[in-house]
Computed example of a mutant assay.
Amino acid sequence: MKTLLFVTDLYYEAKGRNYYEEDLFLTSKIREDFQVVICHPEDTETFEKDFDLIVFRNAGPVANFKDKYQSFRNRVVSGYLKTYNSFNGKADMNGKEYLIELTNAKYPVIPTIDTLDSLDKLPNVKTYIVKPKDGADSIGMEFVTKDELRDKVDSESKNTLVQPFINFEYEVSFYFIDKEFQYALYAPDKEQRWELKEYVPTEEDLTFANRFIEWNNLDWGIQRVDACRNEQGELLLVELEDLNPYLSLLELSVETRQNFVEAMKKSLQKALQA
């Protein structure tokens, strides 16, 4: 039986979510087919060479242990460590730079810049969102006026993202394993963004989400495409989480949850055989 080092921070506190509940459930299921050991994300170096596959799950924002995360990434490359997800993604696992790339390539994404020299790429709105490139879980995010941008954005270091504030209808997330759509969830009340319900996507919705999955082109793993529906009815990408997306598994129906678990087991086998 293959061995998995399941990386998670069971004590990480996230608003509206209990990471430990999700990962305790998930490990209870995948241990039916694998030998599983749980490890804190800051302690992997001691154990990682003794396992067939490192499963990087609910580790919390890696900005909280930036140096150790970068060292881990370096060991993945130099030590040929096998990981899940594969670490060839172009999205959140590398920070938020990709939002600028997608903006410049005219993908359906919330327009994003990192220098005020590019302010003309954003719509002229009353309120802007400013947040750090390596942020997560809304850490460091601020709402500012146009006049305040000069004090908040360092256009030389380019370590800050600027986006227009969008008055969206609701947020919706699409979950994929190995480029295969699994389920979607949405928050019908945007003031309660973690009160999620299952969402039945249209063909147009899936075409939107698949476009980002194909762009990212992971070898294997779980991805979450987060989007918002604007007042014109269009979907815009908020972020593409390809490192350790929270899955809201316990919010799903029993059937959908079980289907996801079985798909993940097959994907883990794929990663092990690669």
Rank of each mutant, 00 (worst) to 15 (best):
K49S: 07
D50N: 05
D50K: 05
D50M: 02
D52P: 01
D52Y: 00
L53A: 01
L53Q: 00
I54L: 07
N58L: 12
G60K: 03
F65Q: 06
F65V: 11
N74E: 14
V77Q: 14
S78I: 11
G79F: 06
L81Y: 09
T83M: 11
N85I: 13
S86Y: 09
F87Y: 15
F87I: 11
N88M: 10
N88S: 13
M93C: 15
Y98V: 08
L99F: 05
I100N: 11
I100D: 06
T103A: 07
K106Y: 10
P108M: 09
P111A: 02
D114M: 06
L116A: 03
L116P: 00
D117H: 08
D117P: 00
L119P: 01
K121I: 02
P123I: 02
K126D: 15
K126W: 00
T127E: 11
Y128D: 01
K133C: 09
D134Q: 12
G135N: 07
S138G: 15
S138C: 15
G140C: 11
G140Y: 10
F143S: 14
V144M: 07
V144R: 15
K146M: 13
D147C: 06
L149S: 05
S157C: 04
L161V: 09
Q163A: 08
I166V: 15
I166W: 03
I166F: 08
Y170S: 10
E171Y: 00
